[in-house]
Design a protein around this nucleic acid. Structure first.
Length: 270
DNA sequence: CTTTAAACCTGCTGGC
DNA sequence: TGCCAGCAGGTTTAAA
């Protein structure tokens, strides 16, 4: 579940299940982390925080578990002692008296002292979290104009976690469509109205996705997503090559941008 | 400095 | 059914 909204939803779920209660056991698959298992018994999880697409599990002893799911990591909540049948490899298990949270498949896992979080190679480079309620359009507009980012092409810029943490491929695709801007434009070349529209879209699209519980591919149906909820986040152009643009009817075009697939309406996005 | 390409990690799907 | 190629919502590194 790889973009900001999905990660934050996961954090919510995990925290609800285990935060605040003493751990009965902790287990790590990786050799380097195994010694932490016994040390964590009896400790509590203070909070589970998303930082962009990374998750920080904060223990009450000055240590934090850093995990990044990349494309394939999966967190699960289950009852204490349970281990749902799966072919995936278990990497972390944190158990309280009644619930457990399990991390499968992820490879980017570390235990860090709270004091070294600020110097972590990934965390230290993150920009403001796109789902941070304190982030506003003015701040994003300022960022788009700052010398550090202004010369960059929007397609690549919006994937850069140092610009806005939590953005990902479907979010950048949808935000650019929402703003009516083509991915090859440079931040510095946007007209004021376009810049304002993009800043607004960069807040609106991720928040709407988070509210509707993120997106999830429908099993066995390539290109279909279980995102069509009542209050609804639904793709306008992502994964919809050849289908009519919802605004003007022109067929949506697929392309490669910054090494990733992107979709756009050639007429609405200039 | 900016952009692209390749590598890395793991899981899933489709084709043969 | 089994194996392999290709792709994926991510990130880092090296090269252009």
């Amino acid at each position: 579940m790889p973009e900001g909204p999905e990660i934050r939803r996961t954090a919510d779920r995990l925290a609800k299940a285990v935060a605040g209660r003493p751990l009965v056991s902790a287990w790590f698959a990786f050799q380097a982390l195994a010694p932490f298992g016994p040390k964590l018994a009896g400790r509590r999880i203070r909070a589970i925080e998303p930082h962009g697409k990374a998750l920080l599990t904060r223990f009450d002893n000055g240590w934090t578990l850093y995990t990044h799911n990349q494309l394939y990591g999966v967190w699960q909540v289950c009852r204490a002692g349970e281990r749902p049948p799966t072919a995936r490899s278990l990497r972390v298990a944190l158990e309280t008296a009644d619930s457990a949270i399990l991390l499968y498949s992820a490879s980017d896992i570390a235990m860090l002292r709270d004091t070294e979080l600020a110097s972590h190679p990934f965390l230290s480079r993150l920009g403001p979290d796109v789902l941070d309620p304190g982030l506003d359009a003015a701040a994003i507009e300022a960022r788009l104009q700052s010398p550090a980012f202004a010369r960059r092409r929007l397609g690549g810029l919006l994937l850069d976690q140092g610009f806005l943490a939590g953005m990902g491929n479907y979010l950048r695709t949808e935000a650019l469509f929402e703003a009516g801007v083509a991915p090859q434009r440079r931040a510095m070349d946007l007209a004021p109205a376009e810049r304002a529209a993009l800043a607004r879209a960069l807040l609106k699209v991720p928040r709407r996705s988070y509210r509707s519980r993120g997106i999830e591919p429908a099993r066995g149906m390539r290109g279909e997503y279980l995102s069509d909820t009542p209050d609804g986040f639904r793709f306008q152009v992502f994964d919809r090559a050849g289908l009519p643009c919802p605004r003007c009817g022109t067929p949506v075009v697929r392309a490669t941008d910054a090494g990733r697939r992107i979709y756009a309406c050639p007429r609405c996005q200039r």
